[in-house]
């Protein structure tokens, strides 16, 4: 980073996405293939400590969008800037330190053959210069943050309950103190009471650490509760974008109204 654009850093948003496009190739014949647009062009910004919710019906490209930002997919065109720096100019260490991902189902995203301690140790070992003692300290602090006792370090993932697995998955994302955490439908596999436990945990972490979240969710009431900004995707395009309050209270588009209607909170049923 040169000195000249360091002054610009302060005015740069934490995350800036411009004209991001992603399409998948489907082979239709022996030589021919068809491009299917997943999403795009999509542009938005995210400020520190804010939560952005990506909503939309299934197949609208929301998972592909967050996976592209998380580094699992590579965009066809468009740019992602983190603190003013292009994502492709960052090496994998810098990327891990700024964007971390929580996967949809923690029972399949935690390696069944390694202990919780090792799962949490690996990102620190790979991405930081901390020594053994500092790493252990960091692991203990993160466990405390997500509400787990140090005893769990020796456990294997199959010994944990589903909510504890979620806590470990959050700990793995938080252990590097990233600026942005991407959560892809993490709440859909939990039942209602545990869902609120995790929601409150995420909000607590955000308050303590000032982390930004990008999350994909179905339940509009949770979205309203958790997020500052809402992005409504329909067939890969942003059809509505705004603060949570304005989108939920005065939706402009048919699709948004439909989403709000169809997602009554299930505990009232």
């Amino acid at each position: 980073m040169s000195l000249s654009n360091q002054s610009e850093l302060n005015v740069q948003p934490l995350l800036k996405v411009t004209d991001l496009c992603k399409s998948f190739k489907h082979a239709t014949g022996i030589l021919s293939s068809r491009e299917q647009l997943a999403f795009g062009p999509v542009s938005f910004t995210l400020e520190p400590g804010q939560t952005l919710a990506v909503v939309g019906e299934s197949g609208s490209g929301k998972s592909a969008l967050v996976r592209t930002i998380g580094g699992m997919l590579i965009a066809n065109s468009g740019d992602i800037y983190v603190k003013g720096q292009h994502l492709s100019s960052l090496n994998s260490q810098q990327r891990c330190l700024s964007i971390r991902m929580i996967f949809q189902d923690p029972s399949s995203s935690l390696n069944p053959k390694t202990t919780v301690g090792k799962i949490l140790h690996a990102p620190l070992q790979l991405n930081t210069d901390l020594n053994d003692k500092q790493r252990h300290q960091q692991i203990l602090e993160t466990l405390k943050l997500v509400g787990l006792l140090p005893d769990y370090l020796a456990f294997y993932p199959n010994m944990l309950s589903s909510v504890q697995k979620h806590q470990v998955a959050i700990a793995r994302a938080m252990i590097l103190n990233p600026d942005i955490i991407i959560a892809d439908e993490i709440l859909s596999t939990l039942d209602i009471s545990l869902r609120f436990k995790i929601v409150n945990l995420l909000l607590k972490i955000q308050k303590a650490k000032g982390t930004s979240y990008i999350f994909v969710a179905h339940n509009m009431h949770l979205v309203k509760h958790m997020s500052d900004q809402i992005l409504v995707l329909h067939q890969g395009k942003i059809i509505e974008k705004g603060t949570a309050k304005s989108v939920c209270e005065s939706p402009q588009e048919e699709q948004t109204k439909y989403l709000l209607l169809s997602h009554q909170p299930d505990y009232r049923k």
Binding site: G70, G71, M72, S92, Q93, R100, S108, S109, P112, L126
Partner: peptide
């Protein structure tokens, strides 16, 4: 997924 997660850890 856990392989993808390990890959994303760098």
């Amino acid at each position: 997924q856990y392989i993808v997660a390990i890959q994303l850890d760098g």
